[in-house]
Amino acid sequence: MIELRGITIRVPGFELRDIGFEVDQGAYATLMGPTGCGKTSILEVICGIRKPQAGRVSINGEDVTKRKPGERGIGYVPQDGALFPTMTVRDQIAFAMSLRRWDKKKQQRRLDDLSELLRIGHLLKRKPHGLSGGEEQRVALGRALAFYPRVLLLDEPLSAIDEATRGQMIDLLKQVREHEGITTLHVTHSSSEARALAGQALRLQNGMVVNASAE
């Protein structure tokens, strides 16, 4: 479960005040809103790489506001993928597992599992340079899921993907939801994407997050 209470974010250009919402355990929620309204900032606050001016972030009932990003158990897929430029795809996906000192067999099993789910087996030896937008997103998704995070945050995962593969990626995200059963918050500006995927729909408008599921 993801829970935000009274979150205030101030960055040059805009301010979000007293943001509060929750995503239920195991739910797939989308957060919709126009470009540049602070959706990415909210994700960054949840995963801890941006400090809010006020408020509290809880994951599965535990207050993580003061915890370091790496202690929160969050898998974050940023909009541009932000893959590690000098690492092979295999090393990127193994990154979080090796930091946790999983034994080699366990790492390999998880790697095989994710390669099959995300269809990236043929990319494992490659470095990010030259991957297509869709491939980058799948690798970033694998990297974020590898260590069985408690929640998954997706920042516009379909925006860098061409129309033809978008449908495939939506199907893939549905499969991930079924396979991993992980609480997910998916940020998007597209309402069709939100309709196709979401169990729970949130909308950021006029600096407030409202529940749009009932609309």
Binding site: G48, I49, F84, P85, F95, F147
Partner: peptide, 27 residues
Amino acid sequence: IDPRPERIAMTLGAGHATAFSRIALPQ
């Protein structure tokens, strides 16, 4: 060098030192 991959590494469990030595320094 784009600092974002280093921040992503931190969400994956790395501290500043690991993000520096494994992500920034090789670049």
